[in-house]
Design a protein around this nucleic acid. Sequence first.
DNA 1: TTAAATTAAATTGTGTAAAATTTATTTTCT
DNA 2: AGAAAATAAATTTTACACAATTTAATTTAA
Lengths: 144, 144
Amino acid sequence: MANYEQLKLSNQLCFPLYVCAKEVVRLYKPLLDDLDLTYTQYITMMAMWEHQQLTAKELGEILYLDSGTLTPVLKTLEKKGFVERQRSKDDERSLIVTLTDVGQDLQHKAASIPEKMVSCIDMELEDLQTLHRLLHKFMRTSIQ
Amino acid sequence: MANYEQLKLSNQLCFPLYVCAKEVVRLYKPLLDDLDLTYTQYITMMAMWEHQQLTAKELGEILYLDSGTLTPVLKTLEKKGFVERQRSKDDERSLIVTLTDVGQDLQHKAASIPEKMVSCIDMELEDLQTLHRLLHKFMRTSIQ
DNA sequence: TTAAATTAAATTGTGTAAAATTTATTTTCT
DNA sequence: AGAAAATAAATTTTACACAATTTAATTTAA
């Protein structure tokens, strides 16, 4: 009988990646609850804080999300008053998403989140930097 | 006006982790379609191939999934004939999940998946090993 | 020894994700 | 110009994830 060593969970790269990603989102939850944001809404707001205005297509490219995910997220963020959605006059197919003043203010409340998160993770800075570098390398070589 | 450098997506560790995890699941999809498995069903089957029989609780601990996720996954796997679900006679609260012969046979079809996945990822083995090691370290230090 | 606490699954509700399809708009090509 | 192709969102469908609650069974403790 074959051993199928390579089919064991402990030998997979995908599995700890999948578990860690979920865990990080779970660690964010109590911090994001204070801002009334989910994790997906948070990364969307990070993109908006950086750019003030983006089309839905651009947001999808930045966040690696398709319209099936992004459309309801943007409608929710609009309902909460953090962004506005309007069609482009140049091209009615495009949806322009604009950061509101309320959305901009939210950045102040979010300012402390990154350091709080780092303090949740008990790893040396060097390891975290290596992890960051390798994940970016993975994205460059495997995505698209 | 503050710069909020630490709130930029490019400075987050969480974001590439989240993107890479989703991408890996997406890369698995065409391979898993041949087995009629989703990614969550696949990791569940990996645990079952390794242990033959587990309680739902044990599966949840191994896979870091709660009953809200696992209950429907196990019902689907039972419907496909890959596992059987029955209550423990010792403790009626426990659900015992058992690998069926059909489920066992599926391992042969899955045997080629790991190498196919590695060939999808254009990174040196050393980088992949480092990534694996750091993600496990992250799990040990941050989860629970 | 039986009421209280704990435990294990299942259920419910909310929010993603992605594939596939649809709708509306714009661009390209003849 | 007008048909065909391409593009951008939105919608639909399927399948997670997780928090919170519920149900049923078991254990603990007064």
